[in-house]
């Protein structure tokens, strides 16, 4: 009986030993900034949407990744950056990516910037178009206000002329 419990305990401990560090690798931008001293120089994996532009600089590139807590810059090899198809803006939701790399509290090569020196990118959801439909109610309000403005303007002209 004790042998079985003992073996089960070892299996559970081994399982936790393997999985817990992996779970701990789930970061957010806010957590990285708040605990920058703790994560400085650590290998991390960050998930988020690529926003704005990919700025190519010779063999390397800068882009910014945003999760619900904030946005941070990623400095990465051009070949990896080219994997990104769509970046987020008004019309698009950018590719959702998983970045693996080293978090730096002050990346010396980049003027002391807090950033991720990325090693690899994995796209787990492709970006998509965002539709911004015109609301009918707003069109109706626009029509009413146009007529109202015109009437007030005419009244004003009449008063002025009078």
């Amino acid at each position: 009986m004790w042998k079985v419990i003992w073996k089960a305990a070892i299996v559970i401990l081994l399982f936790l030993g393997i999985t817990l560090p992996c779970l701990a690798q789930e970061y957010t931008v806010a957590a990285l900034i708040e605990e920058s001293k703790k994560w400085d120089g650590q290998a991390i994996t960050l998930e988020g949407e690529v926003i704005g532009d990919i700025m190519f600089r010779k063999n390397m590139a800068w882009f910014n990744i945003s999760d619900e807590t904030g946005a941070i810059g990623v400095w990465i090899d051009t070949s990896e950056a080219k994997k990104i198809n769509l970046t987020g803006n008004y019309r698009h939701h950018g590719d959702n990516v998983k970045i693996s790399g080293i978090f730096h509290r002050a990346l010396k090569e980049q003027g002391g910037e807090m950033a991720i020196a990325g090693e690899s990118i994995e796209i787990y959801t492709s970006g998509k178009e965002i539709i911004h439909p015109i609301q009918t109610i707003r069109l109706a309000i626009l029509g009413i206000m146009t007529i109202l403005t015109f009437i007030i303007y005419l009244i004003k002209l009449k008063i002025f002329n009078h």
Binding site: M55, W62, N64, A71, G73, G111
Partner: peptide, 11 residues
Amino acid sequence: QSQNILYYHST
């Protein structure tokens, strides 16, 4: 952009 001037990563 939300990162202000940090967005550009440029001296």
